[in-house]
């Protein structure tokens, strides 16, 4: 008797747990052939394909899962990871942020990990733009050097090129040297730049995920020790925008 879709999925899960990704992918595919309306089959296959570096297919599976269940946390999370691997940091960031919102709304235990991924994506996005900038400036420096060589073949040309290199080098060093994070962007609990700051009724702001962690243990504002519950929290949108703007220009601050 042929296996039911659910049974095939379970077989896939067993393979996945054993590290047999090829086998797992095959079972999930068979499950999908039997029943293409179950979002879990697609997210499971997306995860195994993520492990197999099949990023384009991960995206297909995630989009299908999102069609079936628009609030699929896993689908957005895997989608973001695949987009990042394919070199689309902006798309990856909006997918991961969507996963974060869903995780908060659904009170998912993986919210901490997803918040960390959001920051990682922001760092990657900055790294890519830094790389592009550096290439651009390096090209510019080279071209200037060549221009001088070709059009100013006078004594002292080599020195001029040297000066030019120094100027560009200095500008670069200055850019990298200013690695300070303003205190008002830093969460008092994690000591990191905030991702999703919330403000308490006493006026202090904290990153949402860690503050919720703290409130589970003690219903107090960590700084003032006055009574505080989750209901008293409001998003601090201006501070959030400030953190976003800072990380966009200073992705290194994620690891700082």
């Amino acid at each position: 008797m042929p296996m039911k879709a659910e049974e095939l999925k379970n077989k896939g899960n067993v393979c996945y747990a054993e590290g047999d990704y090829v086998g797992a992918e095959k079972f999930y595919t068979q499950a999908i052939i039997k029943d293409s309306t179950n979002a879990a089959f697609f997210t499971n296959r997306a995860l195994v394909r993520l492990r197999m570096d099949m990023y384009d297919q991960v995206i297909d599976d995630c989009l299908k899962a999102i069609d079936l269940i628009p609030s699929s946390l896993k689908a957005y999370s895997y989608l973001g990871q695949a987009q990042l691997k394919l070199g689309y940091p902006n798309e990856a960031l909006s997918s991961t942020l969507r996963a974060y919102e869903l995780a908060i709304a659904q009170r998912s235990p993986s919210v901490g990990a997803i918040a960390a991924t959001c920051l990682e994506v922001k760092k990657k996005r900055w790294e890519l733009s830094e790389e592009r900038r550096r290439t651009r400036e390096c090209n510019l420096a080279m071209r200037n050097a060549r221009l001088i060589l070709f059009f100013v073949p006078l004594p002292g040309t080599l020195e001029k090129i040297q000066t030019l290199e120094e100027v560009f080098g200095k500008a670069e060093a200055e850019r990298c040297g200013k690695r300070e994070v303003p205190d008002y962007l830093i969460d008092n609990i994690t000591f990191s730049v905030m991702l999703d700051p919330v403000i308490t009724k006493y006026g202090h702001s904290y990153d949402r995920v860690t503050l919720l962690d703290h409130l589970k243990r003690s219903s107090t504002d960590p700084l003032t020790r006055e009574p505080l519950t989750e209901k008293d929290l409001r998003p601090n949108l201006a501070l959030k925008a400030a953190c976003e703007a800072f990380l966009k220009e200073n992705g290194w601050a994620v690891d700082w």
Binding site: N188, I189, T210, H214, R217, S218, T220, P222, L223, R225
Partner: peptide, 9 residues
């Protein structure tokens, strides 16, 4: 103390 004495700040 892990009760209300400690604060993560």
């Amino acid at each position: 103390s892990s009760g209300n004495g400690w604060s993560p700040v």
